[in-house]
Every structure is written in structure tokens, then in C-alpha cells.
Simulated assay, not measured.
Amino acid sequence: MDLNRIEKLLEKYFEAETTEAEEQVLRDYFTGDDVAEHLEQYSTMFTFFSNAKQERFTKQVPLKTSKVYYRWISVAAVTVLVFGIYFGNRYQEQREAEYAYLQTKKALGLLAQNLDRGTEKMGYLHEFEETKQKIYKNN
């Protein structure tokens, strides 16, 4: 094979500009017996690439195990969501009940305060009634 052509193909190969056919020519040359001395350092690399191309992965890869985890994660997420909504609503209802209690207590306090003022005024009416009875008795 033309040594000059191999050197040019090797240069193209290291710059990633070769086609598959040109790479096959390089593989054939470097896996053969008549490699030039100054290019022998590349023969181990091309031999490794040729052997690596023949290797195949033969083990089975289990794919269904991950779905079980997603199913349990989704069940857990839904459970947390339901508990959050339930206890969140109970907390909100409790806060609303406390607010209603405080407002009612405030309203009844105002009513009691005004009722006390009203009963004081009733005392004056009682005195008026007694005075009126005295006037009627004297006449």
C-alpha cells in the first residue's frame, strides 16, 4: 500500500475528516503485518478499535422495576395531598370559629355596657313614679 496515502489518511483521521471507507482502509493496514516502523505506534490503537467493534453486550437489562417506584411515589404524593387538604380545611374552620366567637363576645360586651346605662336611667323613672304618686295622694 502507498505509505504516503496512509500518512495522509492518518492525518485526516486525527482531524476527524475521514469517511468510513477511509477508516476501514486504515484499520486494514494497521491490523495487517506490513506496518511501517514509524507508524507501528498506531497499530495497537487500530487493533483495539477493531476488537472493540466486535464486542456485544449480551446481558438483559431489567426495565420494569422503576415503574413500581413511580407507582408508590404517586400514591404517597396523593396521600400527602389529601391529608393536607383535610387538615388544612379543619384548621381554617377552627380559625373561622375562633373569629366568630371573638366577634360575638365583643358584640355582647357592647350590649351589656349599653344595658347597664339603660338600667341607670330606669332608676330615675322609679323616682319620678314615686313623686307622681305622692302628688296624686296629696290632691
Rank of each mutant, 00 (worst) to 15 (best):
S50T: 12
Y69N: 09
K53Q: 13
D116A: 15
E40P: 00
E129V: 14
L102I: 06
K132W: 07
G88Q: 11
F87C: 06
K12T: 00
T79E: 05
Y101D: 05
A76H: 07
R90L: 14
E17A: 10
E127G: 07
A16Q: 08
K137D: 05
P62N: 08
S66P: 01
T104I: 10
Q133F: 05
Q24W: 02
I85D: 03
A16W: 02
Y124T: 14
K8A: 09
I73C: 07
E20M: 10
Y124Q: 13
E129Q: 13
E22K: 00
Y42Q: 08
T44D: 10
T104N: 09
Q24K: 03
E98D: 11
L108C: 03
A97K: 15
Q54Y: 06
M45G: 01
L39M: 06
E11S: 09
K121L: 14
A112L: 10
H38Q: 14
F48Y: 13
L108R: 10
M122P: 01
S66D: 05
I6G: 00
F57P: 03
E7F: 02
E15A: 06
M45W: 07
L111I: 14
A112P: 01
V75N: 06
K121C: 04
M45A: 07
E7N: 08
K64I: 15
I6L: 07
Q24P: 00
E93P: 01
R71M: 09
V75P: 00
Y101P: 01
V61Q: 03
Q60T: 13
L81F: 13
I73D: 06
F57M: 09
Q103Y: 05
T19I: 03
I6F: 02
N89L: 14
Y42P: 00
G88I: 15
G84Y: 10
E96C: 05
Y42H: 12
R95Y: 05
T19H: 01
E96G: 04
R27A: 02
L110W: 05
K59D: 07
Y86D: 05
L10I: 06
E23A: 03
N139H: 11
T65W: 09
L9F: 04
G32R: 05
N89P: 00
S66C: 04
Y69M: 09
S43A: 15
F46I: 02
L108K: 09
F83D: 06
E22P: 00
L115D: 07
L108G: 02
F49S: 01
A76F: 09
R5F: 05
K59C: 04
R95W: 05
I85M: 11
R71G: 04
K64A: 10
Q103M: 11
Y101V: 13
Y29I: 03
Q92C: 05
E129W: 06
Q41M: 10
F83C: 11
L115C: 04
I135A: 03
R71D: 08
M45D: 06
A36E: 08
G84V: 14
E127Q: 14
Q103L: 11
Q60W: 04
E98L: 15
I135M: 04
A36S: 11
E120K: 15
